[in-house]
Amino acid sequence: MSRTWNTGVVALGGIALAAVLTVIGHLEVNDDLNPWALTISDFAVSDRGGVIDVAMVVLALATVALLYGLRRAHPPRPRSSPTAELLLGAWVGGLLLAAVVPTNEPGTAMTTAAYLHRYASVIAFLALPVGGWLLARQDRLASAARTLRTLVLLSLVLAAAMVWSAYPGDRVLIGLAERLLILTEVAVLATVAVVQARAVDHGVVVPHERGATA
C-alpha cells in the first residue's frame, strides 16, 4: 500500500473528524454566544479543553499527515517544496499553540496569553494560503492547481475582510468572516489530500519513474 494513499486518506479522515468536532463544539456551548459576532476561539475558551480545542489538534495532525506525504511520495522534491512544507509547518505550529493557549473571555481585557493566541492564529491563517500557492506550482499537484489558486485567493480576500472587521469595522460579522476563512483554508488542505489519495488510483506514485505502481 502506497504512503501516498495512506497519507491522503488519513488526512481526509482527520479533516472530516475536525469538522464534526467543531460543529459539536458549537452546539454544546452557551446559547447566548453569537457565532456571527464571536470567533471560534471565543467559543473554545467558553468550553476550555473541550471538543473545539480537540478539533484544532486533530486538524494539525491531519496536516502533519499531508506533510509526510509531500516529503515521501514523489522524489525528487520540487525546489519550492521545502518552503511550502515550512509554511505548512507554521500552520501546524500556530494551530497547536492556539489550541493550548486560550484567548480571553469575550468582553474581557486582552491578556498576554490572549495576545499569544491571536498572533499564533494570524501566523497560521497567513502561512497556509502562501504554502498552498507554492504547492499549486508543483507538477505533482498540477491537476488541482487551479482549484488551489482559487481557494488561496478567496482565503486572502476573507482574511482582509476579517482584518477590516477586527479594527475599523468594530468586529461586525467577524465570526462569519473567520468561519468562511477557516472553511476555505481547510479546503486547501482537503484538495491536497484528495490528490494524494487519488494518486494510487491512477497508478502514480513516482511520476518521474515510469512503471512505478502502488
Score class of each variant (00 low, 15 high):
residue 160 A to F: 02
residue 152 V to A: 00
residue 115 Y to M: 09
residue 110 M to F: 07
residue 143 S to T: 11
residue 174 I to R: 13
residue 162 M to Y: 00
residue 110 M to Y: 08
residue 116 L to Y: 05
residue 153 L to R: 04
residue 156 L to M: 11
residue 111 T to I: 02
residue 110 M to D: 11
residue 154 L to F: 03
residue 115 Y to G: 07
residue 117 H to M: 08
residue 163 V to D: 02
residue 168 P to Y: 09
residue 164 W to C: 04
residue 136 A to G: 11
residue 154 L to N: 01
residue 118 R to Y: 14
residue 147 T to G: 02
residue 140 R to W: 08
residue 115 Y to P: 02
residue 131 G to N: 10
residue 110 M to K: 07
residue 172 V to G: 06
residue 157 V to P: 08
residue 103 T to A: 13
residue 136 A to C: 05
residue 150 T to V: 04
residue 158 L to T: 06
residue 174 I to L: 14
residue 128 L to R: 12
residue 141 L to H: 05
residue 159 A to C: 04
residue 160 A to L: 12
residue 148 L to S: 00
residue 103 T to L: 13
residue 102 P to M: 14
residue 148 L to H: 00
residue 112 T to E: 06
residue 117 H to R: 07
residue 155 S to W: 01
residue 140 R to P: 00
residue 131 G to H: 10
residue 161 A to G: 13
residue 144 A to M: 03
residue 122 V to I: 15
residue 158 L to I: 04
residue 116 L to K: 01
residue 124 A to Q: 06
residue 111 T to N: 03
residue 143 S to R: 07
residue 168 P to T: 08
residue 167 Y to N: 15
residue 146 R to T: 12
residue 156 L to Q: 02
residue 166 A to M: 10
residue 111 T to G: 07
residue 173 L to W: 12
residue 102 P to F: 14
residue 169 G to R: 11
residue 120 A to Q: 01
residue 149 R to L: 02
residue 116 L to A: 12
residue 119 Y to L: 10
residue 168 P to K: 09
residue 130 V to N: 07
residue 159 A to N: 03
residue 175 G to K: 06
residue 115 Y to F: 13
residue 105 E to K: 14
residue 131 G to A: 09
residue 132 G to I: 11
residue 154 L to D: 03
residue 158 L to S: 02
residue 159 A to P: 00
residue 122 V to A: 13
residue 121 S to R: 10
residue 136 A to N: 05
residue 127 A to H: 12
residue 106 P to R: 04
residue 164 W to A: 13
residue 135 L to D: 05
residue 170 D to C: 08
residue 120 A to L: 06
residue 102 P to T: 14
residue 120 A to D: 02
residue 143 S to L: 06
residue 150 T to Q: 02
residue 132 G to A: 11
residue 175 G to E: 04
residue 127 A to P: 05
residue 156 L to D: 04
residue 136 A to I: 01
residue 160 A to Q: 07
residue 148 L to C: 05
residue 109 A to P: 02
residue 153 L to E: 04
residue 162 M to A: 08
residue 147 T to M: 03
residue 161 A to P: 01
residue 111 T to A: 10
residue 120 A to N: 09
residue 104 N to Q: 15
residue 171 R to F: 08
residue 129 P to V: 09
residue 111 T to P: 04
residue 110 M to T: 12
residue 161 A to L: 15
residue 125 F to D: 12
residue 134 L to T: 09
residue 161 A to F: 08
